[in-house]
């Protein structure tokens, strides 16, 4: 459950290599991953787990920080504890769900208008 809510990278997933079909405007093809390249710490499972933890602490601090500053709400609702935290979170969830809902009707393949995108 925790893993689904706070996803970590899957180390068993095979590495990807995107094909560059056309020469880029710079005139040279981009180099690809050298063999035996060391994985950057921030994308390792351990790194991501640490980042989640640090992020959690920062989130908690921003909510607790509310106790240290003098809020001067313009509206009653703004004075509720942690208003901006839960409002921001729920607002984003609603926006993503609305977007997903719209996509059901409005999504088309990117070749829909017969152009290379």
């Amino acid at each position: 459950m925790m893993r689904r809510l706070f996803p970590l990278p899957d180390p068993t997933r095979p590495p990807r290599l995107v094909k560059v079909a056309r020469t880029p405007p710079s005139g040279e093809m981009p180099p690809t991953r050298p063999p035996g390249e060391k994985r950057a710490w921030i994308v390792t499972t351990e790194g991501v787990r640490t980042q989640w933890r640090v992020f959690g602490v920062v989130l908690a601090l921003t909510v607790l920080g509310e106790l240290l500053v003098h809020l001067h709400p313009h509206f009653e609702i703004e004075g509720w504890f942690g208003f901006h935290a839960w409002f921001g979170f729920l607002g984003c969830v609603v926006m993503v769900l609305v977007a997903k809902g719209l996509a059901v009707f409005l999504k088309r393949k990117d070749t829909f208008y017969d152009v290379v995108d």
């Binding site: 706070f6 989130l59 509310e66 935290a85 979170f89 984003c92 993503v96 409005l106 088309r108 393949k109």
Partner: peptide
Amino acid sequence: LQLLLFSGLAFFMLLPLMKRTETITL
């Protein structure tokens, strides 16, 4: 900071829903 960081939390928790597909939106 609350507003932004918690929307960041929403982004990473909803990442499976944000997965990009080769589509456009009418």
